[in-house]
Amino acid sequence: MIPVYTRPKSLTNVVTHYCPGCPHGIAHRLVAETIDELGIQGKTVGVASVGCSVFAYNYFDVDFQQAAHGRAPAVATGIKRVTPDSIVFTYQGDGDLASIGMAEIVHAAVRGENITVVFINNAIYGMTGGQMAPTTLVGQKTTTSPFGRDPKTQGYPVKVSELLATVKGAHYVARFSLHNPANIQRAKQGIKKAFQNQIEGKGFSLVELLSTCSTNWGMTPQNALKWLEENMLPEYPLGEFKTGEGE
């Protein structure tokens, strides 16, 4: 027998604290596969954010720093400036990156920081119990939009990838989805490109990954993936919004 699929060695061999079916685990695995394939485990430094992925450092066998809520891109900037040969990535959710950390992510892109950002968008605050996020869809019910997000008072979902694609300093900005194996495979290629860019010194790369929160959405994991496909994809179109070509 020859192996078709094995556990990446950059993942630690522990049970994660994530809920059953949470795509954080998928995204972690894709990042770990990328680290393995690029042979950069010994020089990768991760930055964990605040949210469900606060303990990401337990799951990657690489050096890690745990950042304050929203500040991961600033922390990553500090690391990268001191150790430019390290491969530095942040792993942030939508509450962390698109709400409290909006200034930090935009300005990391503006500076063209040579870092990689893995951005998980599941349209809700997971860790704190299902509150409305800036990415929550119009009409989506959360604990703080119990009647559905009302654009009149709560505005519209923020589209991080489209926003950052307008920033000249950003080299690579792309959105993928984790709702089925084909899309997971594409996401993997995007993540790999985002790390490869950093190795080649091309500058700021961000990969947005559409994800689910079956616990706070109140669905089974399988139904949550279906809900993502039917509701999030129309609002958050997939694709590479900026690839650095022609600059």
Binding site: V45, A74, G78, I79, E104, H107
Partner: peptide, 17 residues
């Protein structure tokens, strides 16, 4: 940095490195 909030978090990252 874009703010004092960001600059001091850069210090965190840089000191940690």
């Amino acid at each position: 940095a874009e703010s004092e909030v960001s600059s001091i978090n850069m210090v965190y990252g840089a000191a940690g490195a």
